[in-house]
Design a protein around this nucleic acid. Structure first.
Length: 785
DNA sequence: CTATGCAACTTTTTT
DNA sequence: AGTTGCATAG
């Protein structure tokens, strides 16, 4: 989990450049600054980006143009030429994964010399490091705790309750969001514009923010946002310290610059101000995190902020075929407000991007599964196939289908390991053991597993703690000596308090994984899950095992806890050949031979909510998301849409995504799936407007001309012979056999329920459903009712 | 204090 | 639809 990414995982390799040379050659290169071999594999633009070491540099690196390679080579170059030693370079990324990948690749380039780069890491990891050194100056102790989202929320609830605000009208979640927003913009409680501070609960927003920060300080804790915000405060209040860091970081490199928020931007600008040796690498066309505070403006404004900046465009793509690139470029060209890049490749055009329609999302899932099986039969490894969805809700149906036909798959993303309840609980036990003053952790496991301690006991505890200004655990210790509690609660609480004392002593005596194991067993926590009959209990126990095992990689318990909140990740089963299933957001930075992109329907993708909330900016971000999706594919990109989809449990008709119409026709093949809406009366005839524009595209006309195509519906891939036969059979069936139903007849549809047949056209019926309204359905989905 | 049932809520996700 | 949080009854 905390070690290297496993080899089976799709490699986030961002470049298609030549393979690394031998170790010896690399070592030699590190010794010879001139004509260094690490430079020889670069194309001219890449080389320019690497060699422009002095002054501000902006590298606009399109998808698949060797972004990471430029970054790592640049670091190697700085070190090899003697311009900087590893610890002179500040190199920031957004994710731990990216940081790890960079470390790994620098190691490959220059050997162990690069391994000791102390200032390579995420914004938050580096922020933490800096804050621990100067904690007192921002009102903390250097062993401050970093709160995760759920602790943050619990604290927020307390703050809201303290102010006598109805938490139902003003949910903690929403306050957390508001405060996060301020922090993302680099605003401390005093800096929030007065107008905005009125935002929450009758103008109490600013007040609540201040109260929340005060609570954090009392707990000697920070949240993620503080890791950056407090650095800013530190530097602003202590110019000498800022000057020290400005001097220390001779060269600054930033990955994924398009994802920086205002706080990160200010953070960087403060550091870069003196030397101005700052190189930012990013792609405005891949900015997809605007909704969580990322400012595309940061990248668009770079030349303005750093006058005289060198701008290098990397446009030579080493990943995708011509057609895929053409589709992606054509699409993204519709966006305004971009710096403008045109990806090009020297590779062949390859297969056109395909667009397939399906009757409903279930059929879409079936088509994808069949298509994958067909690729599999041709020897295509499953690990090189990905299905990228817009929202995670789309995954369920696809998973269902995969399970049915026995396609091995894995979901990437989802709840992070350290966010899982059982891990948070286990961590809470350890936190209290190590630090009896960690009230949030104590409160979390106070009655987990159930030990008959409820709200009443907790309130009494809180009262005690507040009166004496002591932590909850200490308050509990006093409380059990009084007779304020009922005997039952008192003895349970005594048991818990004594356990913690025992466990704390154990830490000195035994290796930390063993201590953790003991705590989980003696507390009854393991037992709680063993008794649990629910489906995921086994998985949770498994996670707990993994949790204990992972501790071995740290020198001691304290070291483990220190890093865990920032760095912990889910462990993946290794080695297996599986299809990857994930959201488009999770796919950034990955690449696959074949990429399926289902759900290209207006409302879903582009997502209606994104448009409602952010208007044209929202639409453009959706378009960038589409661009990211397409550019994940090396050889094949397969788009699809469904004409009917269940949204929030209700079936609704959908229309193909406007993005489909925006694709350049010459790069796209439209594959008309089964005969549902190809011939005769279809719902499009009655309602042609939404889809109308597509009729004009050559691809669509081609599709109409040959009702041929892809992947039949029906069978779970049992039939051999490939798509064509299945499809032929289907077409024959659908045109030849007259329908067994007639007008007025009562029927039952598996999805729409009971209804009355209103019209018949071959095997296609118009049915007035009792609940779902008038729909056009295939008779094969109907039973006489 | 716990178990049960009902209501509300559903974009995307890192640290 | 499906979960998840909350209120009520036990």
């Amino acid at each position: 989990m905390i070690h290297e990414p496993d080899a089976s995982r799709p490699r986030p390799s961002d470049d298609g450049a030549p393979a690394p040379v031998s170790i010896a050659a690399r070592a030699m290169a590190a010794l010879r600054p001139d004509g260094a071999s690490y430079l020889s594999g670069l194309n001219p633009e890449q080389r320019r980006a690497v060699e422009a070491t002095e002054g501000p540099v902006l590298v606009l690196a399109g998808a698949g143009t060797g972004k990471t390679r430029v970054l790592t080579t640049r670091i190697a170059h700085l070190i090899a030429t003697g311009k900087a030693r590893p610890y002179d370079i500040l190199s920031v990324t957004f994710t731990n994964k990216a940081a790890r990948e960079m470390k790994h690749r620098i190691g490959q380039l220059i050997g162990p010399a690069g391994e000791g780069m102390p200032w390579l890491g995420t914004f938050h990891a580096i922020g933490t490091k800096i804050l621990r050194r100067h904690a007192e100056l921002v009102g903390l102790k250097s062993d401050f705790t970093i709160l995760g989202t759920d602790d943050q929320l619990r604290l927020m609830k307390q703050v809201i309750a303290d102010q006598n605000i109805d938490e139902k009208r003003w949910p903690a979640r929403s306050l957390a969001h508001t405060i996060d927003g301020w922090k993302n913009r680099g605003l401390g409680p005093e800096q929030v514009p007065p107008g905005e501070a009125q935002a929450f609960a009758f103008g109490k927003g600013g007040q609540l923010y201040a109260a929340y920060q005060a609570r954090l300080a009392t707990l000697n804790a920070v949240d993620f946002g503080d890791l950056l915000l407090l650095c800013l405060k530190l530097w602003r209040d202590n110019p000498d310290i800022l000057a020290n860091y400005q001097d220390r970081f001779r060269y600054i490199l930033v990955d994924e610059y398009q994802d920086t928020n205002v706080a990160q931007y200010l953070w960087l600008r403060l550091l870069a101000q003196a030397r101005k040796n700052v190189a930012c690498v990013g792609d405005d066309d891949q900015s997809i995190y605007g909704w969580r505070g990322a400012e595309v403006d940061n990248i668009l404004r770079f030349e303005h902020d750093f006058p005289g900046a060198t701008v290098v465009r990397l446009e030579r793509n080493y990943r995708s075929t011509g057609h895929i690139l053409a589709a992606a470029s054509g699409l993204i060209a519709r966006n305004e407000g971009r710096l403008g890049k045109t990806l090009r490749t020297e590779d062949a055009a390859g297969e056109p991007v395909t667009v397939t329609g399906a009757w409903d999302s279930e059929e879409e899932a079936r088509q994808i599964a069949e298509s994958i099986e067909s690729l599999q039969r041709k020897g295509h490894p499953l690990s090189e196939i990905a299905v990228l969805v817009r929202i995670s809700a789309q995954m369920r149906e696809i998973e269902d289908r995969f399970v049915q036909v026995g396609l091995p798959y894995r979901v990437i993303g989802g709840p992070r390991f350290y966010e899982r309840a059982e891990i948070r609980d286990a961590l809470a036990y350890l936190r209290v053991t190590m630090n009896g003053a960690d009230d949030l952790a104590f409160e979390r496991i106070f009655n987990t597993p159930k030990r008959g301690l409820g709200d009443a006991t907790l309130q009494t505890l809180h009262a005690y703690a507040r009166a004496d200004r002591i932590p909850l655990l200490a308050a509990a210790r006093k409380l059990i000596e009084t007779d304020e509690l009922k005997p039952r609660a008192r003895s349970m609480l005594r048991g818990l308090v004594e356990s913690f004392s025992r466990w704390t002593r154990l830490v000195e005596a035994k290796p930390h994984p063993e201590v953790a194991q003991t705590i989980l067993e003696e507390s009854g926590y393991t037992e709680m899950w063993q008794k649990d009959r629910s489906a995921d209990a086994a998985g949770r126990l498994e996670n707990l095992k993994e949790f204990v095992r992972s501790m071995e990689e740290f020198p001691d318990m304290a070291g483990f806890l220190e890093h865990v909140s920032l760095v912990m990740e889910a462990s993946e089963a290794e080695g297996a050949d599986r299809v990857s299933l994930m959201t488009l957001h999770a796919a950034k930075g990955l690449e696959f031979d074949t990429v399926f992109l289902p759900g290209w329907e207006d409302g879903l993708f582009p997502n209606q909510r994104a448009i409602d909330e952010s208007g044209r900016a929202g639409l453009e971000e959706e378009r960038r998301l589409a661009h990211v999706g397409l550019t994940r594919a090396r050889k094949r990109a397969k788009l699809s849409f469904a004409v009917n989809r269940r949204i929030h449990g209700l079936w609704s008709s959908t229309i193909p995504s406007r993005f489909i119409d925006e694709l350049p026709p010459h790069a796209v093949d439209v594959i008309e799936a089964p005969a549902h809406f190809s011939a005769g009366a279809s719902r499009f005839d009655r309602n042609p407007a939404p889809f109308g524009s597509s009729y004009g595209t050559p691809g669509w006309q081609r599709a109409q001309a040959n009702t041929a195509g892809g992947f039949g519906s029906g069978r779970g891939g049992g039939r051999s012979g490939g798509p064509r036969e299945i499809e032929g059979e289907l077409v024959a069936k659908s045109t030849a056999t007259p329908s067994a139903f007639s007008g007025g007849q009562r029927v039952f549809h598996t999805k729409f329920g009971p209804g009355t047949v209103a019209g018949v056209d071959g095997n296609k019926l118009t049915v007035d459903f009792d609940k779902a309204g008038r729909k056009m359905v295939l008779d094969s989905f109907l039973q006489p009712g």
